[in-house]
Design a protein around this nucleic acid. Structure first.
Length: 736
RNA sequence: GGGCGGUUAGCUCAGCGGUUAGAGCGUCCCGCUUACACCGGGAAGGUCCGCGGUUCAAAUCCGUGACCGCCCACCA
C-alpha cells in the first residue's frame, strides 16, 4: 500500500495498470485455473466461447454488457476452483466488413472492382489488423478475463480447415446442394443474402391495376401489382380455380402489354379471390410465390434484371434503365395506352438489406443452400429435452425457448453462398468442359501469401478428364463459420486435448438479436458435426442465456456500422471501468433492454468510491493501531487467520460481529444463487446493500472504537474480524 | 396474419402469490461525528394501466380491454 492513499478512487491509472498486468502475465490461461489436486474428470470445468465481435471497427457498450456478464460468471467459476476457459476471438463478418471497407474506399473514390479481388482482399486484411487490434486492446482494458493464448479468428488457417471439413462433409451427405432458386438479392452489395438478412419495413406504396387484354376478345383481365416493372417478366396470369368470374378465361391467353407477348391464364389456389381483383400476374423470376406457381405450371422464368438492379435485354425497350426509373416509364406507357385501370394507395412490406439498406430484389439465382429440416428436427429435440436431461439445452429466459422452437418448426433452407470477396471460399471446382462440380480432395489448407487456401485442389475432372477446372468464386455466409465456433476454436476436426476437455461448452451468452443467425445454427451444426457418440457430447453448449440489448437513452439500437455505438473506453475514462461494469451488470435484468443514462453510471461510480474508501479507512487506521496495540498486517491477512474468523471480542459488541458474519454468509449465498440463474442485477443489488448498508454504515461505525482500543484483547479480534469480512466481501464482489 | 414483451414513486427501472411495495437519480429538511460531500441522518412522494375472476391472501396467477415496443410471416 502506498503511503498516501488518494481520497477519492482514481480508477484510470489503477485499472489500466492491472489490466495490463493481467494480460502480460497470461493470468487467465485455462491452465492457471482449477484445482491442481483434482485430475481428469474429477476436476470441474467451465468453458465458454466469446461471441466473436465483428472486425468492423471497435466494440461498443453493448459488447461490454455481454463481456461483463460473461466475465462475472467466468471469474466466479474460476474462484470456485473450476478449470475455466473463456476463449476469445473475432469474426471476419464477411458482408459487414466488406461493406465497411468498400465505404472507406468510396471515400477515396475507388470501387472494389477497380482494385481486383486480390488487392481488395489485401486491403481488408489490413483493415482487419487494425480493427482487430483495437478490439483486443479494448477488451483487455475493460478487464475481460479471457485466455488470450487461445485467441482465434474465423479466417485462421485452422478454422478454415474446420470450415472445409464441415462443408465437405455436409456436401457429401447431401445436406449442402447447389441450385437455381429464388433468393434475396442485394443490388448494392451485389450478392445473395439469406432470409434473415432481409429487414422488412412497412412502406406506403401503390397498387397499380393494369389491364391485360384477352387474346381474340375485347375483354380485359385486370391485375393488381405493387411492382409494375416486374410485369416485363410475366409468364402467366393466375386466377383462383373456383373463381366463377374468370372461369371462362382459364386456358386462354392474354396479351402482355408493352412486351406484346402472349401468356396463358392459369388457375392456382394460391390466388386469393378477396384481394385486389382476384387476378395475379405471375413473374416466376422475381417473386417467391410466383416462382412456386411457375414450377407447378411449368412456366418459363424470365429474369429481366441485372446484378445491379437495372433492366436487362429481356426487358425489351426498357433495357438499361434502373428498376425504379423503369417503373415510372412502365406506368407512364401503360397510362398512355389506356391500360391503367386505376391506382390505389397500399402500404406493403418492402425488404431491405440488413447491411446497406438497399431494397432487396427477389431474384432467381444459382446459389449454394443448406438443407435445414433434418438438422432443425434434431436441434429441436435438444432444446425440448427429448434427448434426455444430459443433452438438454436450457434456454434462459424461458420465452426465448418458445421463439427458438417456433423457428426450428418453420425452418427454410439456408442460402450459404455469397458473391463477396471476403470470406471462406467454397471448396468446389467447376469443370469447364462438362460443368461437373468437383469437391476439394481434402480439408487441408495451405498458406499462400500469409493466408489460408484450400489445398486439396482436384487435378482433373473425374467425369470428362478435363484439367480446366476453376474454383467456385463464391464465399460462404459468415455465419457458416460462426456456426462451428464452439468446436472449431478448440481444434476440430482434430481430436485435440482442448476439444476433449472443454467441449461441449458450459454456456453461451449472446444477445437475443442473433438467436437465429448464430445460436440456433450452432445447435444444429454442432449436434450434427461435433464428435461424440451421444447427443450430450455434441451439443455446443449446455445452457444458453440471451441477454438484453443496450439502447441509447432514446431507445435506438446500437451498431458500429451505423455509427450509433457508444465507445466504452470513453466512458471508462470518465467514470472508471469498475463503475461501468457495475452499472451494466446492475441493469442487466433478463428480458428487458437497457437504456443508457448517465445517472446510473454516477451511482455506480459512487459505489466504487465507497469500496475504495472503506478499504482506505482500514489501512489508514491499521497504521495507527500498529502503534497503539502492536497489531500487524501479517497477523490479520494470513489465510489461516482469516478463515478462523469470527473471533470473540472481549466486552460489549459481541453480537455485532456475529451479525455481520451471518449477513456476509447470507449475502454470499444469495449472490451465488443469483449468478447461477443469470440474475446479475440481483447479485449486484445484494452486494451493494451488504457493503454499503451493513458493512459501511453499521459495522464499521460500530467497531471503530474497538479498533482503536489499546486493549489487545479487544483490538486484535476486532481487527481480525473486520479484515476477514472485508476480504470475503471483496471476493464476493470480485466477479463484478 | 402469427408470436413475444412492456404499462409500478417526478425520471430510469427492480420486485412477479404472503408482514407497512423497493433501488438509483431527483426533491425537501438536518449534519464538515478523526474512510468517503462520489458522504451521513431523516422526510415527502405510488387507485402497482382499466375491468372481471381464482385465492384466506394478488403489483404478482387466469380472462378481457386499452396504449406502447419488438420479433417472425410469400397475400399480389
Amino acid at each position: 500500500m502506498p503511503q498516501e492513499i488518494p481520497k477519492a478512487y482514481e480508477p484510470q491509472e489503477i485499472e489500466e495498470h492491472w489490466a495490463k498486468a493481467w494480460y502480460e502475465e497470461n493470468l487467465f490461461r485455462a491452465e492457471n485455473s482449477g484445482n491442481p489436486k483434482l485430475a481428469g474428470d474429477a476436476q470441474p470445468r467451465f468453458s465458454i466461447a466469446l461471441p466473436p465481435p465483428n472486425v468492423t471497427g471497435s466494440i461498443h457498450i453493448g459488447h461490454m454488457l455481454e463481456h461483463t456478464q460473461i466475465d462475472m460468471l467466468v471469474r466466479w467459476h474460476r474462484m470456485r476452483g473450476e478449470r475455466t476457459l473463456w476463449l476469445p476471438g473475432m469474426d471476419h463478418a464477411g458482408i459487414a466488413t466488406q461493406f465497411v471497407v468498400e465505404r472507406m474506399l468510396a471515400a477515396e473514390g475507388v470501387r472494389r472492382q477497380d482494385l481486383g479481388r486480390e488487392e481488395f482482399e489485401r486491403r481488408v486484411w489490413r483493415w482487419k489488423a487494425e480493427s482487430g487490434g483495437v478490439i483486443k486492446q479494448q477488451m483487455i482494458r475493460l478487464g475481460a478475463s479471457c485466455d488470450w493464448t487461445r485467441e482465434k479468428f474465423t479466417l485462421d488457417p485452422a478454422l478454415y480447415r474446420s470450415v472445409l471439413e464441415a462443408f465437405l462433409r455436409l456436401h457429401r451427405e447431401g445436406l449442402i446442394y447447389r441450385g437455381r432458386y429464388m433468393v434475396n438479392w442485394c443490388p448494392r452489395c451485389q450478392t445473395a443474402i439469406s432470409d434473415l438478412e432481409v429487414v422488412h419495413n412497412e412502406r406506403a406504396g401503390n397498387l397499380w391495376h393494369i389491364r391485360y387484354p384477352v387474346a381474340d376478345s375485347k375483354e380485359f383481365l385486370v391485375v393488381a401489382t405493387t411492382r409494375p416493372e416486374t410485369m416485363l417478366g410475366d409468364t402467366a396470369v393466375a386466377v383462383h380455380p373456383e373463381d366463377e368470374r374468370y372461369a371462362h378465361l382459364v386456358g386462354k391467353k392474354v396479351m402482355l402489354p408493352l412486351m406484346n407477348r402472349e401468356i396463358p391464364v392459369i388457375a392456382d389456389s394460391y390466388v386469393d379471390r378477396e384481394f385486389g381483383t382476384g387476378v395475379v400476374k405471375i413473374t416466376p423470376a422475381h417473386d417467391p410465390n410466383d416462382f412456386e406457381v411457375g414450377k407447378r405450371h411449368n412456366l418459363p422464368e424470365i429474369d429481366v434484371m441485372t446484378d445491379d438492379a437495372h433492366l436487362n435485354a429481356d426487358a425489351g425497350k426498357y433495357a438499361g434503365l434502373e428498376r425504379f426509373v423503369a417503373r415510372g416509364r412502365v406506368i407512364a406507357d401503360l397510362e398512355a395506352l389506356g391500360l391503367m385501370e386505376k391506382i390505389t394507395e397500399h402500404t406493403h412490406n418492402v425488404g431491405t438489406c440488413d447491411r446497406c439498406k438497399a431494397i432487396v430484389e427477389p431474384r432467381l439465382s444459382t446459389q449454394w443452400f443448406m438443407k435445414m429440416k433434418p438438422l432443425a428436427d434434431e436441434a429441436k429435440k435438444a432444446v425440448t429435452g427429448e434427448f434426455g436431461p444430459a443433452a438438454e439445452i436450457e434456454v434462459v429466459p424461458d420465452n426465448q425457448r418458445t421463439i427458438l422452437l417456433q423457428w426450428f418448426e418453420n425452418i427454410r433452407d439456408w442460402c450459404i453462398s455469397r458473391q463477396l470477396w471476403w470470406g471462406h471460399r467454397i471448396p468446389i471446382w467447376h469443370c469447364a468442359g462438362c460443368k461437373e462440380m468437383i469437391p476439394a480432395t481434402s480439408s487441408d489448407v495451405e498458406i499462400v501469401d500469409g493466408h489460408a487456401r484450400a489445398a486439396g485442389i482436384p487435378a482433373k475432372c473425374p467425369k470428362c478428364g478435363s484439367e480446366k477446372l476453376a474454383q467456385d468464386k463464391d464465399v460462404l455466409d459468415t455465419w457458416f463459420s460462426s456456426a462451428l465456433w464452439p468446436f472449431s476454436t478448440l481444434g476440430w476436426p482434430d481430436d485435440s486435448e482442448d476439444l476433449r476437455t472443454f467441449y461441449p461448452t458450459s454456456l453461451l451468452i449472446s444477445g437475443y438479436d442473433i438467436l437465429f443467425f448464430w445460436d440456433a445454427r450452432m445447435i444444429m451444426v454442432g449436434l450434427h458435426l461435433a464428435p461424440g457418440a451421444s447427443e450430450k457430447d455434441r451439443i455446443p453448449f449446455r445452457r444458453l442465456y440471451l441477454h438484453s440489448l443496450v439502447r441509447t437513452a432514446e431507445g435506438a439500437k446500437m451498431s458500429k456500422t451505423k455509427g450509433t455505438g457508444v465507445d466504452p473506453l470513453q466512458l471508462t475514462q470518465q467514470y472508471g471501468t469498475d463503475a461501468l461494469r457495475y452499472m451494466l451488470a446492475s441493469m442487466a435484468a433478463p428480458g428487458t433492454d437497457i437504456a443508457l443514462t448517465e445517472d446510473r453510471i454516477l451511482g455506480a461510480r459512487a459505489f466504487a468510491n465507497k469500496i475504495w474508501n472503506a478499504a482506505r479507512f482500514l489501512f489508514m487506521n491499521l497504521e495507527k493501531a500498529e502503534a497503539s496495540s502492536g497489531i500487524t498486517l501479517e497477523e490479520l491477512a494470513a489465510p489461516e487467520i482469516r478463515s478462523a474468523a469470527p473471533y470473540a471480542v472481549k466486552g460489549e459488541g459481541e453480537l455485532v460481529h456475529r451479525w455481520i458474519f451471518s449477513r456476509l454468509a447470507a449475502t454470499s449465498a444469495e449472490v451465488s444463487k443469483a449468478l447461477d440463474e443469470f440474475r446479475f442485477h440481483e447479485a449486484c443489488q445484494t452486494i451493494y446493500h451488504f457493503f454499503w448498508g451493513d458493512f459501511c454504515d453499521w459495522y464499521i461505525e460500530w467497531v471503530k472504537p474497538q479498533l482503536s482500543s489499546t486493549d489487545r484483547d479487544v483490538a486484535v479480534p476486532a481487527w481480525r474480524n473486520i479484515f476477514a469480512v472485508l476480504d470475503t466481501a471483496l471476493r464476493v464482489l470480485h466477479p463484478v
